[in-house]
Design a protein around this nucleic acid. Structure first.
Length: 1052
DNA sequence: CCTCCATGGCC
DNA sequence: TTTTTGG
DNA sequence: CCAAAAAGGCCATGGAGG
């Protein structure tokens, strides 16, 4: 209805042939108009990363010796434990103690004992190193030193608390270990040399042994490929790798310029989007890459055992020596660098694959598998074998332990721990999402750490950050300076290991520290974190600091997709089958050949059987087909059980073709929720779903909730990003259980939207209301904000996964087993579309949804392509929101008052702007939002350039802007931009229509603002006025307190 | 003890 | 959440 | 087609700092 937004009436002309922004034209003047708006709301934010750590949480016990008290958590042990078992968050408290005293124990609870053990050893190792580093490094790091020492001491003393067995044993290990490590350095080479040989033999033999079925083929095939092309390809590969890293590294010229540059750095357009992709790509690039990555294991071993100095950085194969030592972090950084320098997914994949294979080649099995229970025929044998290996590899592995059997029973295997580390580091997480582990590190802390580590001020670092747009680079450069100054480390390449510098970081080291950081809370915890990070930086060399910082920042920024990690992992496992993993028996193979792919009856063939066939039935399927199938299997496994711990455990113990038996949806572990694609018009919807049966559902403006009930009655709720939000919505599972009480449901996984609900009026409350909910400690009664469950899907019921069922079936099951309960549990209002392209009905339904305080509609196919595809934003689900529709939604014309320096790929250009409406009464420009999306790269360049002609030294008195929104650069009010928003909301930070909102101090802000185009036809004073903004605000269905009843929920 | 800031989480 | 971009 | 990487508003939390 209303809404015509700025008219496009004549938009023709697109004048601006000039360089102006592409989107620029649009003459006419209508100013903002608004339509009846629909709304929904959303907010920004974004799934940040959660880092890893399996369940582990390093928990630090305060040394009781000192008699300190602490325990901030005030929780008792049992409580704690039980929480742990569920794999939930568990933080550690630093308590009152100086951090130095804590941290002595790191308990790995969900992880194999072995892993825990490993951590311990390394911990000490680390500290020791740090200590030495400190001494060597001198200045700046002093405080760190003492702290570290303190910790070490405490560790040796033993944990008094020892609440947990594992902890105790770990600790004892620690004491002895520490010096072992040092000694080891020297012995290592020799010892390992021999081992290596053995390994090779072993491995080969191994392969032959298990590979009864066509293994010969495999080897030969692979080798064949290898022979054919290896030589040819080696060159190129080397070249590429070499080039990238070096090029990148050297490109840091940065220098003290900061002074001269103090003034707002005028962005240089040129910077945006460059990234030279070396390879031009050809159609057969793919096959080439595949071929190249098929190097035989033997070949890899050759490479590895040759005199390659990995620390010095690859000779093209990126290896490290000796190869059975923990993977050096520098090797990973080299890969990161290479990835950052290329855009070819295939090339990236290849590098990662090789890296993973390096680890997989090692013997020394997977240690005590985390509860894997499976029954596949030959398993047992494997376990045995693994056990043996473990013992043998114990010393070799661990932290290069040695020292005889110092380490008792469960010994960590570098294979497994390295793989964990690699996977987590590459995906930049620290633990499965549902463990709710937070890093608690942001720019502030990082800046502090970098400043301290480099002996410079925080302000200095901040400035560099503004200029460079990447904290990681800042750290790397700052560090470089410091280092040369101090003059330690670096130098000896090979010497790195033996030299006087601190021991080089391994991937395991880094991950461990990340985990430690993630679990510290309490007084002084931030300082502790800074110190911890600082100590990492001190040990870092070359690009290491860059990636450490970026990792902690949560943005690796190398363009590495999660799916690429998974694919690489899959490829690695196929090419280098982990020791102990069996090939299918003849019988099993036969089953696989004959598996029925139409189980799911979703219209689509269930991916698994087909993939398994391609994977196993070699004769018919060439290697690249196998690889692809493997990737599909692994991705699916991860999407069903989003935990790298589980995945790695499974991959090391199970053959790929059985993976689905182990990594499969089960109540208690969240599955990636299915996502929807935005659709711009009803026409688009029809075009997409042409001829298929589909349904329309209201899209509620609440929080996505995946509700689980286990057979034992336990319940959980997970958010869209898979965090456990059970504490936030305690009543949700209760309502749901109540809803299915009558149908004898034993366990389930249900998909729904939790919406704030006003029981008096029977209406939904806006998202903003829901978001004021306490995040923890709520109960159904205490909750001030009432909620209602709007259910729309069922993924698991009574012991069976429904993922492969089609939506119509899933929905039937849901309705059959879960009954609506007034004010507590309902189905999402829906309407099944009746054939033909009846646009009117859809339109009507959409309007009704909006009136009912919904954001719009969800559109889903019922039968065809209607399986529940975890984590996928596929075409099967579409979302249709009013503001997507052209000509609808809130469109306003605002004035840019200032800008903020862009980060990352927007370095050198403004990344965001502050926009304001105009208040005619006061002649003020009042901020209503910042804006950072909707710009093309070209827009960004053009806008920066043009506005740079209008900078002013400081905020104009005419601008009503909160201090918290201070821009980096201020402009005169010269332009008008058309901006689209989903919604308007009361704001404490923005000033739109302030003093007219009825709430003192609060103005109005925009939700989800995005740039549409420059209005060259408008003067700033002609921008949308605050009165208009206010009007638009009140025109929203969700406001007015339900001016027009939008109660009808179950209509239709 | 109370406020401010940083962090992360939802959209 | 939204958007643009590159493989 | 997919997914990474830029970016938004508003909220609760918990540590830092007066």
């Amino acid at each position: 209805m209303a809404g015509q937004r700025s008219l496009t009436s004549f938009f023709g002309v697109a004048s601006s042939s000039s360089s102006s922004t592409a989107k620029t034209t649009a003459p006419t003047a209508t100013s903002a108009s608004r339509e009846a708006g629909g709304y929904g709301e959303k907010k920004g934010g974004g799934a940040a990363l959660r880092r890893d750590a399996d369940v582990v949480v390093g928990r630090k016990e305060n040394a009781t010796n000192d008699g300190i008290d602490i325990n901030v958590m005030g929780r008792d042990e049992e409580d704690d434990d039980s929480r742990d078992e569920r794999g939930r968050k568990r933080k550690t408290s630093v308590g009152v103690l100086p951090p130095s005293n804590n941290a002595d124990i790191v308990v790995a609870s969900g992880v194999p004992a072995a892993a825990a053990e490993d951590e311990e050893e390394d911990l000490v190792d680390t500290d020791d190193e740090v200590a030495r580093a400190d001494e060597a490094g001198g200045g700046g790091t002093t405080p760190d030193t003492s702290m570290t020492r303190g910790r070490r001491a405490a560790g040796r003393r033993g944990s008094s608390s020892a609440a947990i067995a594992v902890a105790a044993s770990s600790i004892s290990g620690v004491g002895t270990r520490k010096r072992v490590i040092d000694d080891d350095e020297s012995e290592d080479d020799d010892g390992d040399e021999e081992e290596e040989e053995e390994y090779i033999d072993d491995h080969d033999r191994d392969a032959e042994d298990d590979d009864d079925m066509g293994d010969e083929d495999e080897e030969s095939i692979v080798d064949g490929e290898n022979d054919d092309r290896d030589d040819d390809h080696d060159e190129p590969v080397v070249g590429t790798i070499d080039a990238s890293p070096r090029g990148m590294g050297s490109s840091n010229k940065k220098q003290k310029t900061l002074d001269g540059r103090d003034a707002p750095p005028h962005p240089h357009p040129a910077v945006l989007s460059k990234k030279t992709s070396s390879a031009s790509t050809t159609t057969n690039k793919k096959s080439e890459v595949v071929a190249r990555s098929m190097k035989s294991n033997k070949r890899l071993l050759d490479i590895m055992s040759s005199e390659v100095d990995v620390n010095a950085t690859n000779d093209g194969e990126l290896l490290w020596m000796p190869y059975d030592k923990p993977a050096p972090y520098s090797a990973l950084c080299d890969v990161f660098t290479a990835i950052e320098g290329t855009s070819g997914r295939l090339e990236i994949q290849e590098r990662l694959t090789t890296f993973f294979r390096m680890v997989l080649l090692r013997d020394g099995g997977g240690g005590g598998g985390v509860g894997n229970d499976d029954d596949d025929d030959e398993e047992d044998e494997d376990e045995e074998k693994k056990a043996d290996d473990d013992e043998g590899g114990a010393r070799g592995n661990a932290t290069k332990g040695s020292e005889g059997a110092a380490v008792e029973a469960a010994v960590p295997s570098t294979k497994k721990s390295d793989l964990y580390a690699l996977v987590y580091l590459t995906s930049n997480t620290v633990a499965p999402q549902h463990d709710n582990i937070e890093l608690g590190v942001g720019d502030s802390i990082l800046i502090k750490a970098i400043g301290e580590a480099s002996g410079t001020s925080n302000d200095f670092i901040k400035k560099k950050y503004e200029k460079e747009g990447d904290l990681g680079n800042v750290a790397m450069n700052a560090k470089g300076r410091q280092r040369t100054l101090v003059g330690f480390g670096a130098v000896g390449k090979k010497g790195a290991m033996g030299g006087g510098g601190p021991r080089r970081l391994s991937c395991v080291d880094v991950l461990r520290v990340f985990k430690e950081i993630a679990n510290v809370t309490g007084s002084q915890s931030q300082k502790w974190k800074v110190d911890k990070i600082k100590s990492l930086l001190v040990r870092a060399k070359g690009t290491e600091s860059k990636y450490i910082i970026r990792g902690l920042q949560g943005k690796l920024r190398i363009g590495l997709a999660q799916s690429t990690v998974l694919a690489s992992l899959a490829h690695a496992v196929v090419l280098t089958r982990p020791a102990g993993v069996m090939r299918p028996s003849a019988a099993r193979l036969n089953e696989i050949r004959n598996m029925d792919g139409t189980d799911g009856a979703c219209g689509s063939v269930h991916a698994y059987p087909d993939a398994a066939r391609k994977l196993c039935c070699r004769p018919e399927h060439p290697l690249d087909v196998q690889l692809e199938a493997a990737a599909a299997i692994v991705k699916r496994a991860y999407n069903e059980v989003p935990s790298y711990d589980s995945l790695v455990d499974a991959l090391l113990s199970q053959p790929l073709h059985e993976l689905h038996r182990h990594c499969t949806l089960k109540p208690g572990v969240p599955v990636g929720p299915m996502l929807a694609k935005p659709t711009k018009s009803i026409k688009d919807v029809l075009k997409r779903l042409d001829g298929m049966k589909f349904t329309l559902e209201y899209k509620y403006d609440g929080e996505r909730a995946q509700i689980h009930m286990l057979p034992n009655g336990e319940t959980r709720v997970f958010s869209r990003s898979l965090l456990d939000s059970s504490e936030k919505f305690p009543e949700v599972p209760l309502y749901t259980q109540e809803s299915c009480a009558a149908s004898g449901v034993t366990d389930f996984v249900l998909d729904a939207e939790v919406v704030a609900f006003n029981r008096e009026t029977g209406q939904f409350a806006p998202f903003q209301v829901l978001s004021t909910r306490k995040r923890t400690g709520e109960s159904a009664e205490s909750a001030k904000i009432r909620v209602i469950v709007q259910a729309f899907d069922l993924m698991y019921l009574n012991g069976k996964s429904l993922l492969d069922k089609k939506l119509s079936e899933r929905r039937d099951l849901m309705k059959k087993n879960f009954l609506p309960i007034d004010g507590k549990f309902q189905y999402a209002t829906s309407m099944d579309h009746k054939e033909d392209g009846d646009t009117a009905a859809i339109e009507e339904f959409l309007d009704a949804a909006v009136k009912g305080q919904c954001e719009g509609l969800m559109v889903k196919t019922l039968d065809e392509n209607a399986a529940y595809e975890p984590s996928r934003r596929s075409l099967n689900w579409l979302k249709l929101k009013k503001d997507y529709l052209d000509g609808l939604g809130d469109s306003v014309d605002l004035v840019p008052l200032g800008a903020y320096h862009g980060k990352g790929k927007r370095t050198g250009v403004y990344g965001a702007y502050l926009l304001a409406c105009y208040d005619e009464d006061t002649e003020q420009f009042q901020s209503v939002c910042k804006i950072g999306t909707g710009f093309s790269d070209e827009d960004l360049r053009d806008l920066s350039a043009s506005l740079n002609n209008h900078t002013i030294p400081e905020k104009s008195p005419q601008y009503n802007v909160s201090d918290t929104l201070a821009c980096d650069v201020w402009f005169d009010a010269v332009q008008v931009w058309e901006v689209k928003a989903a919604d308007l909301s009361k704001s404490s930070t923005h000033k739109g229509a302030i003093d007219k909102t009825g709430e003192v101090g609060r103005g109005i802000g925009l939700r989800f603002p995005r740039f549409e185009r420059v209005r060259q036809d408008k003067k700033p004073e002609a921008a949308t006025t605050s009165d208009q903004i206010l009007e638009m605000y009140y025109a929203q269905d969700s406001i007015v307190g339900g001016a027009d009843g939008g109660d009808d929920m179950d209509g239709i």
